[in-house]
Design a binder for these strands. Structure first.
Length: 277
DNA sequence: AGACCCCTGGAC
DNA sequence: GTCCAGGGGTCT
């Protein structure tokens, strides 16, 4: 499941592969994957040039010319791949959109959006509409850019358990299940602790661990799991996980068994000894 | 805060 | 066949 480091890796790779490229043609194989008007989607894109690709929380943001924007959320299983324009209705498995790239030769003349579970969504916007959409969903600041005071104010303003608050994209945008569990372990906080109870010192400590974890994970091109695949293959940060996917195994610090709970509706791995309420 | 929903594939 | 994976929207 792509989270901030995986989405960052994909966006960086897309930017390198596609900046300056014109979208010659686009076809939808599964219209529901487009959350804005699917009828208008293809003509919106035809002839536009990709001027850059970056990340907005867990969204991938394609900057197009003429103040047009394409926002993609990969959710659980979305991915991009390069391939050959589908002839005779033959598409790669789980490919839902094809973007034909100008001045590229087969078999790499097409960008595909693929998504096994079809949870992901693409949205096409003109500039002002993009800003309005980001406001509408209350997308919070990036955890890599936020300062300690703003982080403290946002975390402690929410009632609820700390893990649930970290996963709330309107508090900070980009953390998912893996990096929430890993950062709580690294910082020594119990996932069920009340978010509002953290002191200034504690939120500062937590933020330092979140940022270090995200930077290390980006440096390793993210975590490869059963469902994440980047444009150029997976990352290697899964080898650094200390709690995610390890419940029942022993804590690498205190050697007691890691526990599992459901918090915020998500499977949660933590060390009951090292992470105190 | 929790339940359900959107979906598919892999583990058992 | 049943359960599980879990981002995020929606409803209670």
């Amino acid at each position: 499941m792509p989270e901030l480091p995986e989405v960052q890796t994909i966006a960086t790779d897309l930017a390198e592969a596609l900046t300056g490229t014109v979208i010659e043609k686009a076809i939808l194989n599964f219209p529901k994957i487009v959350a804005t008007d699917p009828e208008a989607f293809e003509s919106f894109l035809v002839g536009t040039r990709i001027e850059g690709v970056d990340r907005l929380g867990k969204f991938i943001h394609f900057h197009l010319n003429n103040d047009r924007h394409l926002l993609t959320h990969l959710k659980m299983t979305g991915r991009f791949s390069l391939g050959e324009w589908p002839l005779d209705g033959i598409w790669p498995k789980h490919a839902h959109i094809a973007f034909r790239l100008q001045d590229r030769a087969p078999p790499l003349d097409t960008l595909f959006y693929c998504d096994t579970r079809k949870f992901g969504r693409l949205r096409a916007f003109h500039g002002n509409d993009l800003a309005a959409y980001v406001q509408k969903i209350f997308l919070g600041p990036d955890p890599l850019l936020i300062d300690a005071k703003d982080f403290h104010d946002r975390i402690t303003a929410k009632r609820g358990r700390l893990k649930a608050v970290l996963l709330n994209q309107s508090v900070v945008s980009g953390l998912g299940n893996i990096y929430a569990d890993e950062s709580l372990f690294a910082a020594g906080f119990h996932p069920a602790r009340s978010a509002a109870s953290l002191s200034r010192t504690e939120t500062a400590h937590l933020l330092i661990h979140i940022q270090k974890l995200l930077r290390d994970a980006i440096a390793r091109r993210g975590s490869t799991t059963s469902t994440y695949e980047g444009l150029k293959g997976g990352g290697s940060f899964q080898n650094q996980h200390r709690v995610y996917g390890r419940s029942g195994q022993n804590c690498l610090v205190c050697h007691q068994p890691l526990a599992r709970a459901i918090i915020a509706g998500r499977g949660t791995s933590y060390c009951p000894t090292c992470q105190r309420l």
